[in-house]
Design a protein around this nucleic acid. Structure first.
Lengths: 105, 105
DNA sequence: CCATTATTTTAATAATTGTTTAACAGTGGA
DNA sequence: TCCACTGTTAAACAATTATTAAAATAATGG
């Protein structure tokens, strides 16, 4: 994962509505949740929601699947893991440190 | 850490120059690096750099200390850890899962 | 097929953000 | 004190982004 992709992912999450969408989907796990249900839960208009889905999808943070009339969205954990790895990699020039809760070094 | 703080932190990192600054400081560890050295390394004008420092500082992601004429900046790992925790918390409704590389549940 | 429900697209507007230039403010040495 | 060095601040501009409403597309069941 390169810097550009990380910026795309961070930008996608750096917005209150999109962060709320993502958090909701993280909790839902692989089942995901239908777009309409998310709209209702977060009190966001369908058009606005769709706009934000696009941003999160483009970043690879969420995925969708159609089921009947409904479109289910779910979080893609792989991209999140790669992003976290990028942010914390090579901490403290590789020297032992306890700064990153066991993720560093 | 609440959603608003997380959005602030994510926004701060969601920009190529600021992400580069942060990555550089993560590698530097507690020593940090002087503003001028960062400007040179990243080929960014002092004014632009200062603008971005402000954003990162406001988010709590970096800290500064004056040493003579120089201002040293270093990463604040605590805020990063809190942000990561927020993003991955309560994954899959708390059910066992391997989606978040051992950080979930 | 047609009516209904669900979601996306488009276009317009308002708000936010990044960069540049120039001026300003500390620090330390001559 | 004066001066060079470091870094910050302020104002102006260009570019990007979020939101809304309206129209368009897609899928289902009668």
């Amino acid at each position: 994962m390169d810097a550009k992709q990380v910026v795309t992912a961070l930008s996608a999450l750096a917005q209150p509505t999109r962060l709320a969408i993502y958090r909701l989907l993280v909790v839902c796990g692989n089942e995901g949740m239908a777009a309409g249900q998310i709209a209702e839960k977060l009190a966001v208009s369908p058009a606005t929601l769709s706009f934000h889905f696009r941003s999160l999808s483009h970043a690879g943070l969420i995925e969708s699947r159609q089921a009947g009339r409904f479109v289910y969205y779910c979080a893609n954990f792989g991209v999140m893991n790669e992003m976290l790895a990028y942010l914390t990699a090579n901490c403290c020039a590789g020297e032992p440190c306890d700064l990153l809760n066991g993720k560093g070094e």
